[in-house]
């Protein structure tokens, strides 16, 4: 038996199919979840994918955060359910306060779309164990609201506890504080990042590398060995 990993579709989600595909490529079974459905269909983990849920109205992720599916997901994430938020999914996780800090518009006010170099800072989370700490990876980045902000105390806490999971290398593409590209909660089951690992799982597309695949193999190994 393999692991079942849910992918939530909100109105305006874009990368739900790509994320399902990445899960399948890694060897797990993707399960489509619907924003109006409180039922998580007994999945073993959930990915909140990229896109523009509710058109980014109010704030990116602010309206999706109050979807029926999120009521269940917030409770279960606090109880240990592994959750990965990619791009808009990361924004939803900060709006839901499952991850600290907030996301704002890129400091240069432009949409950005590029292959981004990152350093994996924390290889101890549910979603990063197939990387090694310090490993440098290339995965696509595409967003409007990618500027990670948090108050100085929260930043110090994240740095001291090793909860900055990914950092931008070479260039800070959006003005994120401390070059933060992704973070984890203290338990390591909830991880969010702006770049898109699901777009880098096959050599034919994206960066031509498969640097995003370990996200999905990490969680698969964790669930199957559990």
């Amino acid at each position: 038996m393999t692991a079942r990993i849910g992918v939530v579709t909100f109105p305006g989600s874009l990368d739900d199919r790509d994320t399902q595909r990445a899960i399948r490529v890694a060897g797990a079974e993707p399960v489509a979840l619907w924003h109006k459905d409180k039922d998580l269909k007994q999945v073993d983990a959930v990915v909140l994918c990229g896109g523009f849920s509710y058109g980014d109205y109010l704030r990116a992720g602010a309206i999706a955060r109050f979807s029926p599916v999120m009521d269940t997901l917030i409770d279960q994430a606090k109880a240990g359910l592994p959750v990965l938020g990619i791009c808009n999914g990361f924004q939803i996780l900060t709006e839901a306060h499952l991850l600290p800090g907030g996301m704002l518009g890129n400091d240069h006010l432009h949409f950005i779309c590029r292959d981004q170099k990152l350093r994996v800072e924390n290889a101890g989370t549910a979603w990063t164990s197939d990387y090694s700490a310090g490993q440098e990876i290339h995965i696509p980045l595409k967003n409007m609201d990618g500027r990670y902000v948090a108050d100085p105390r929260t930043l110090d806490e994240l740095e001291a506890e090793g909860r900055v999971a990914f950092r931008y290398l070479d260039v800070n593409p959006n003005g994120s504080l401390n070059d933060i590209a992704g973070i984890t909660n203290a338990a390591g089951n909830v991880v969010g990042l702006m770049p898109h690992p699901e777009h880098a799982v096959e050599p034919l597309i994206g960066t031509g590398r498969t640097d995003g695949l370990p996200f999905f193999t990490s969680i698969l190994k964790k669930l199957v060995n559990a």
Partner: peptide, 13 residues
């Protein structure tokens, strides 16, 4: 309003 310590690039523009 954004908190005073947070950069507001739109306002700056």
């Amino acid at each position: 309003m954004l908190k005073p310590e947070i950069l507001d690039p739109q306002g700056q523009a």
